[in-house]
Simulated scan of single mutants.
Amino acid sequence: MKSHLRYAGADALTQRQALQAIIADQPVLMGVLEELRDLALPDHLLVSGALYNTVWNVLTDRPALTGINDIDVIYFDASDIGWDAEDRVIKRLEARFAHLPLPVQVRNQARVHLWYEQKYGSPFSPLTSSAEMLGRYASKCHAVGARLDAAGGMEIVAPFGLDDLFAFRMAPNPVLDNRVTHTKKGARAKAIWPELTIIPWPGP
C-alpha cells in the first residue's frame, strides 16, 4: 500500500498536479466543475470538504464520498448583493444538480459581510473575490478551491499552498476568531480520518 503521505513535502508543482489528477478522477466533482463553467457563474470556485475530504479519501483508500456531507460552491457577484439575487442562483443550482448524490450549497461571497457578524459574533470586512474568502477559512488545509477554464484546464486556488492538505495536517488560520470552527471541524475530521494531525488554536 502506498503511503498516504506520499505527496507531503513535495514541491508546489507536484502537489498541484496531484490534486488536479485526484479531482479529474472523480466523476461527481468533474460534473460539478463542468456545469459551473458552462453556467458562467461569476468568479466561482468548488471548495471545502468536497475537495480536501476527497484527497484524504483517495490517499487512504477510503470510498470517494466518505465524510462528505455536501458540495460547496462559492461565487462573487457584487452587482447585486440582495438576498433575492443570491436565492435565484441557489434555486438555479439546486435544480441543475438535483441528480447528484450530495446536495450542492452555493453562496455569494460578496454578501458575507452582511450576515457574518450577526451569525458568528465578530466583524468581517467586505471581500473583493472568492479567492480572498479562502484566506479567511479557519483551517489552512481547507483553503483550497478549483474551477475549469474555457479550454478545460483546471485552476487550483490555494492561498496557503497544499502541503497542509497532503501532510494530513489541520493547522489554524487565526486571521479571524475561528477557534470554535477549527476545533469542532478538527474533532469531526479526526474521527473519520485518524491519520490527521490537528494543531490546536493558538493561545489559551
Rank of each mutant, 00 (worst) to 15 (best):
I74Q: 02
I90N: 08
D61K: 08
Q118I: 06
V73F: 06
I81H: 01
D72E: 13
N108L: 07
I71W: 01
A78F: 06
M133A: 15
T60Y: 00
Q109G: 06
D77V: 03
R62S: 08
W115R: 09
D70E: 10
V58Q: 11
V112Q: 09
N69I: 02
F76P: 11
L100C: 07
E86M: 12
Y120E: 13
G82M: 03
V73G: 09
G67M: 05
I68G: 04
P126V: 12
L114V: 08
S129N: 06
V73L: 10
N57G: 13
Q105P: 02
F76W: 10
D61N: 13
V112F: 14
Q118N: 13
L93Y: 00
S130I: 11
D72T: 05
M133H: 12
R111V: 10
T60S: 15
I71P: 03
A131S: 15
R96P: 10
R88Y: 00
D84L: 14
M133Q: 14
K119R: 15
T66R: 08
K119W: 14
T60E: 03
A95R: 05
I81N: 01
D77R: 00
L100S: 04
P126L: 08
P103D: 03
K91N: 13
V106L: 13
S129I: 07
M133I: 03
A64K: 05
V89K: 00
I74A: 04
L59C: 07
S122Q: 15
S129C: 09
A110N: 01
S79T: 14
F76A: 11
R96N: 09
D77G: 07
L59E: 14
D80L: 10
R88N: 08
I71Y: 00
D80F: 00
E94P: 00
V89E: 03
A131R: 15
G121S: 11
V58I: 13
R88Q: 14
S122H: 12
D72Y: 00
K119V: 15
A98L: 07
R92D: 05
E132R: 01
A98I: 09
F97P: 05
D84S: 11
V73W: 02
V112W: 03
E132V: 07
N57R: 04
E132K: 03
D61I: 03
L127G: 06
A95L: 13
P63D: 07
S122A: 13
D80C: 04
F97D: 05
W83H: 10
D80I: 08
V73S: 04
L102H: 01
L114H: 01
N69Y: 02
D84W: 02
I74R: 06
D77Q: 02
T66I: 09
A95T: 11
R96G: 09
V106Y: 04
L102I: 08
L65W: 00
V104Y: 01
N57V: 12
Y116P: 10
T128Q: 14
E86T: 08
A78S: 15
P126M: 07
L59P: 05
R111C: 14
